[in-house]
Design a protein around this nucleic acid. Structure first.
Length: 554
RNA sequence: UGGGGAUUGGUGUAACGGUAGCACUACGGAUUCUGAUUCCGUCAGUUAAGGUUCGAAUCCUUAAUCCCCAGCCA
């Protein structure tokens, strides 16, 4: 992509469309995209795909990218959501260069255009209520019937629309409708609603309006006003494109091209705003930023970096096929990113005490340990050892299979960066559970030993809460629930486990937002909300690949 | 049901009438003071059936399956 190789770079279907438009001289060679969220919820990874797509295209073609809020329904929209969206889009790294707009910025213009359409005989005020309108609309297989109000005169429509605007009628009493075709096989064209009466306080326009334009009547014109060239949206709007085109055409304004792509689906996750909201409201998760949520805020708090999310969005591609990406892809992208930048440290999640029987009493040795095996620039840190230490319970097996090359009775294993220990004695409690291991320590580093394990010095260990996260859902497709069950029945009961871990001393100064690889375990994020100075709390971002666990599973 | 889309290895995604490629997974191996990382290799695919063509994932026909639309939501 960046070198002079003559290998053809593969282009997705949207890039191909833009290439063709540019070749044909469309839009004077401009490329201008936008991300148009409705401020009625928090952004999730599906939105990240759209943001990366739109922003990426603008950047690639030297064009522009706008952030525009589609705020035409005051009943659902709130400033809180606007703020969070702005913050999340910025975090992701998309730069709108000051072009942040609101559909509500265009309400006056939209209203003027509505009058223009009424005058042109293309719109009329309809007195049908919601239920009647549904009846008149027909069904998928039967055409609709014309509204009895369809042929009102321009003067009457103008008068009625003016009075609608002035607040003379009650909510839902009348609508302004586009006069298109009640017999159209595309239901969206059966005289769709342009304006509805709705007395609701708007987060930006306050109580100025009691009528609000519909999405269909707003979106294309908003794009048009902003000079958008390629209006990229998801597949479910494909059926709306004729209406999008109708608005721009009838108004005779700049006509952006709507292009639809398949929204993102991920295994072990749900993506619909409604379901995410339900998870939060019914407290199946701990808020929008619960690290198990695939909201941008959740991923942030989990410890994902924007780089990883972007790399993921790049990798999954763009197409019109409704696909489901494996969760492992996301996790891989996160590992790949963190592997490069996360300093290493040692922590023991499920400790077993080890006493070094030949350790000189009172002695403490301090090792200088590299923070990254492949990147010396990350420096070193001091790690003490003083005769008693913790190792991971999983790293000891009393009756170990041959392939197990960690610690076993009579066996040897390397203590990372310190030396080699040999297990001489296993101490058990009355119930037969292992409580302590007696080992001898050999400081000789040069010998080859098959296994290397992590450890934490007992004398200086720091106890800290660590949250171990797993998929929020136990099954690949949470929506696939049996009769009478819902996606909630597919929640993974062990998606969160909080433990108290033993951490190496250096971690006491971890700052909120710091990321580490706890060697052989995974990547961990210093929780920015719950951590206190000297008392960090860690969230497991993602585990390391574990081929041993896989082996065991066989 | 009328209409609109879609279908390429396990998962994604290219190939636009001329050798089905790439990535991830899986599997095997090498390196390794993280069973991590890194490196090498292997398996594996055009929804089906016809047709056009010297040649079809690509064009035509028929069929199958999946998704979207009957909000005064977006």
């Amino acid at each position: 992509m960046d070198d002079a190789s003559d290998k053809p770079v593969s282009r997705n279907f949207i890039q191909q469309i833009i290439d063709a438009d540019l070749a044909a001289g469309k839009n004077g060679g401009r490329v201008h995209t936008r991300f148009p969220p409705e401020p009625n919820g928090y952004l999730h990874i599906g939105h990240a795909k759209s943001i990366c797509l739109n922003y990426g295209l603008a950047k690639e073609y030297g064009g522009k990218f706008n952030l525009r809020f589609d705020d035409t329904n005051p009943a659902k929209e709130e400033q809180e959501y606007v703020d969070s969206i702005v913050d999340d889009v910025r975090w992701l790294g998309a730069d709108w260069e000051g072009r942040m707009f609101f559909a509500s910025d265009y309400f006056d213009q939209l209203h003027a255009w509505a009058i223009q359409l009424i005058k042109a005989g293309k719109a009329y005020v309809c007195d049908l209520n919601a239920e009647e309108m549904r009846t008149y609309r027909g069904t998928l297989s039967e055409p609709g019937k014309d509204s009895p109000y369809r042929n009102r005169s321009v003067e009457e429509n103008l008068d009625l629309f003016t009075r609608m605007t002035a607040g003379e009628f009650s909510d839902g009493a009348r609508t302004l409708r586009a006069k298109i075709d009640m017999a159209s096989p595309n239901i969206n064209l059966r005289d769709p609603v342009m304006y509805r009466i709705k007395r609701a306080h708007h987060h930006r326009t306050g109580d100025k309006w009691c009528i609000y334009p519909s999405y269909d009547y707003t979106h294309g014109q908003s794009d048009s006003i902003e000079g958008i060239t390629h209006s990229i949206c998801t597949l479910e709007f494909e059926n709306h494109r004729p209406l999008y085109d109708w608005c721009c055409r009838e108004l005779g304004i700049h006509h952006p091209q709507q292009i639809e792509f398949a929204r993102l689906n991920l295994s072990y996750a749900v993506m619909s705003k409604r379901k995410l909201l339900q998870l939060v409201q019914e407290k199946h998760v701990d808020g929008w930023d619960d690290p198990r949520m695939l909201t941008i805020r959740g991923m942030r708090r989990r410890g994902y970096r924007a780089e990883a999310v972007r790399a993921f969005c790049e990798r999954i591609g763009v197409a019109k096929f409704n696909s489901t990406i494996e969760m492992a892809w996301l996790e891989d992208a996160v590992r790949e990113d963190l592997n490069i930048c996360a300093p290493r440290a040692m922590a023991v999640l499920r400790p077993v005490l080890v006493t070094l029987t030949n350790w000189p009493a009172g002695k403490t040795e301090v090792f200088d340990v590299p923070n990254h095996p492949q990147n010396p620039e990350l420096g070193t840190r001091k790690v003490p050892l003083s005769g008693k230490l913790f190792i991971e319970a999983d790293d000891f097996m009393e009756e170990a299979p041959k392939q197990f090359f960690r610690l076993k009775p009579g066996g040897e294993v390397r203590l990372r960066a310190a030396g080699i220990i040999k297990c001489d004695e296993v101490v058990k409690d009355a119930a037969g559970a292992v409580t302590e291991l007696h080992c001898t320590f050999d400081p000789d580093h040069s010998r080859k030993v098959k296994g290397t394990i992590h450890w934490v010095d007992a004398a200086t260990a720091l106890d800290a809460p660590v949250r171990l996260y797993d998929h929020l859902f136990a099954v690949e497709n949470p929506d696939d629930a049996p009769e009478g069950k819902t996606f909630l029945d597919n929640l993974n009961p062990s998606s969160l486990e909080t433990i108290t871990a033993k951490l190496e001393q250096s971690l006491a100064t971890a700052a909120p937002g710091d990321r580490f690889q706890f060697e052989r375990l995974g990547y961990f994020y210093t929780d920015p909300v719950d951590s206190r100075p000297g008392a960090p709390v860690f969230n497991r971002t993602v585990t390391l690949r574990d081929t041993w666990a896989k082996e065991k599973g066989r």
